[in-house]
């Protein structure tokens, strides 16, 4: 049987997106034949590349033998996975009950106004994306947002803008 060329084509396409599949190979090898590891593989891939473009999903499908439809199905089911790139600083704005009661909607408005983007979009300078997420579990400090591994609590419109300015200033 003639060998399918799919994997090679995927790799080339992924190169254009600046995605080096070599980084994922150790993970794929580790989980080859281990059933139930698709989510773990996807989590590793997203950690490496920041997001999961369609071509990468096809590559993972080809390497693991899991049908593309199933890979895509899992990716779209869980909120953690994203198929679009995000800004350098990914802001996770908590939409838990306590944050909602204490004004998370106002903070979202501030983010939208200050950054000039809607949820999930990247700012023009590629610095920021914000996403609404379910409870971050820091309810007593509500409203809360998380950027990277750092949690910022008791946000006000003013403190939110100050935090963003500080992060942007660090980059210059």
């Amino acid at each position: 049987m003639e060998k399918c060329n799919c994997t090679k084509r995927q790799t080339e396409k992924l190169k254009e997106l600046n995605i080096d599949v070599g980084l994922l190979r150790p993970c794929l090898e580790k989980y080859t034949g281990v059933s139930g590891s698709l989510i773990t593989v996807l989590q590793t891939a997203q950690d490496l590349y920041g997001y999961l473009p369609a071509d990468l999903l096809l590559y993972i499908s080809a390497m693991t033998g899991i049908p593309p439809a199933k890979v895509y199905g899992v990716v779209t089911f869980y909120t953690q996975f994203r198929t679009e790139p995000v800004g350098k600083h990914h802001i996770l704005l908590c939409q838990g009950t306590a944050c909602h009661v204490n004004g998370a909607a106002g903070i979202e408005e501030t983010l939208r106004e200050y950054l000039g983007v809607n949820e999930g979009e990247i700012t023009a300078d590629g610095m920021f994306t914000y996403s609404n997420v379910a409870c971050l579990g820091c309810c007593s400090l509500s409203p809360v947002m998380m950027i990277g591994d750092k949690t910022y609590g008791t946000l006000t419109k003013e403190s939110t803008v100050a935090i963003l300015k500080q992060l942007a200033a660090k980059e210059v």
Binding site: T40, G73, V74, T79
Partner: peptide, 25 residues
């Protein structure tokens, strides 16, 4: 440890099991 991927429904035990098996929860 298995890290979840963000789905409230996975708190339901059969959905959690499906998620552990790498499926949609």
């Amino acid at each position: 440890i298995k890290a979840g991927a963000g789905a409230f429904v996975c708190g339901e035990e059969t959905a959690l099991i499906a998620s552990l098996e790498g499926e949609r929860g």
